[in-house]
């Protein structure tokens, strides 16, 4: 059946076989973002958690650190056990040490909770949510390849996760510098390791969380089930991330880069494994 000329004009040129259909990918990503933006159950935690972690906590702890007596802290940081890793802090004037320790090294790692959480929530919605809303079947009957659909779903969760993390990091830097200013009198965030954590490690963490949730979502039938199953994986990760990232900021820059590299490796392996399982046949069977 031939198309009428006006309809032919309405069509964009077809994507050659084997090439990515970026227009279709963009369309699915845009659709997922629009849908998520309208879902209070998803948007609210994504605003509230960063607000608590990046504004409420730094303000309260920063005000405390600014006015507290730093001499005890200085003694602990200078003790032989930890002095090798705290040398940068110990080198600061005593009144700055507690502010830098609390806001720069102890609280900053909580930023990694943001990519973990955001990408987990969005991935659960994008993968298990389609099954739950019973929208997957009609999607599978569209002329989009399995690879393009997978990529669109990954990007639809990953791009917002990284964007929200980076915006959160900027907000955190502004808040902490404002709170710390009376004690510091200068900008103390970002510093090298912090920047590496945000630019290099956080995107890897987002992808790692996404990879895990894609795996979990293939077993789950609802978003809630995916979140529950994911919680069993993601919550311990959050704990490990928060506790270990403190040490991450205390090691030299190369250490941060290497840690990020390991995370990238694991995350990419997980996403690649997810890709091989993401076939229409499997999805239709589980839908």
């Amino acid at each position: 059946m031939s198309r009428r000329p006006d309809e032919a004009e309405a069509l964009r040129p077809p994507t050659p076989p084997g090439r990515r259909d970026w227009e279709a990918i963009r369309t699915v990503v845009r659709k997922d973002l629009t849908a998520v933006r309208r879902s209070k159950a998803i948007v609210l935690p994504m605003i509230l958690v960063p607000l608590v972690l990046l504004v409420a906590m730094p303000v309260s702890l920063g005000l405390f650190a600014r006015s507290a007596d730093s001499s005890q802290v200085s003694r602990v940081l200078s003790s032989p056990v930890v002095s090798s890793v705290t040398v940068d802090i110990v080198a600061l004037p005593e009144r700055e040490q507690l502010v830098v320790l609390v806001l720069g090294y102890l609280l900053s790692p909580l930023l990694l909770v943001i990519p973990l959480m955001v990408s987990a929530v969005l991935a659960a919605d994008a993968f298990a949510g389609e099954k739950e809303r019973r929208t997957l079947e009609s999607m599978l009957h569209l002329p989009i390849s399995d690879g393009d659909l997978y990529l669109a779903k990954i990007l639809g969760a990953y791009l917002p996760a990284v964007t929200i993390t980076w915006v959160s990091a900027v907000i955190y830097a502004v808040v902490t510098n404002l709170v710390g200013w009376p004690a510091m009198g200068r900008l103390f965030i970002p510093f090298q390791q912090w920047t590496a954590m945000i630019v290099w490690v956080a995107p890897a963490v987002a992808l790692l969380s996404l990879g895990l949730l894609v795996f979990v979502s293939s077993k789950a039938r609802t978003t809630q089930e995916a979140n529950q199953l994911g919680g069993a994986v993601i919550l311990p990760l959050i704990f490990v991330a928060a506790s270990q990232a403190t040490a991450l900021l205390l090691v030299p820059l190369l250490g941060v880069v290497l840690a990020g590299l390991v995370l990238w490796g694991v995350a990419l392996a997980l996403v690649a494994a997810g890709s091989s399982r993401f076939t229409r046949d499997r999805l239709a069977t589980s839908a």
Binding site: L11, R12, P143
Partner: peptide, 17 residues
Amino acid sequence: ELTARIRGFNTRGARRR
């Protein structure tokens, strides 16, 4: 429009259809 775009319609074509 989601379906129309995936099916290859351009923005104006999708809207019209």
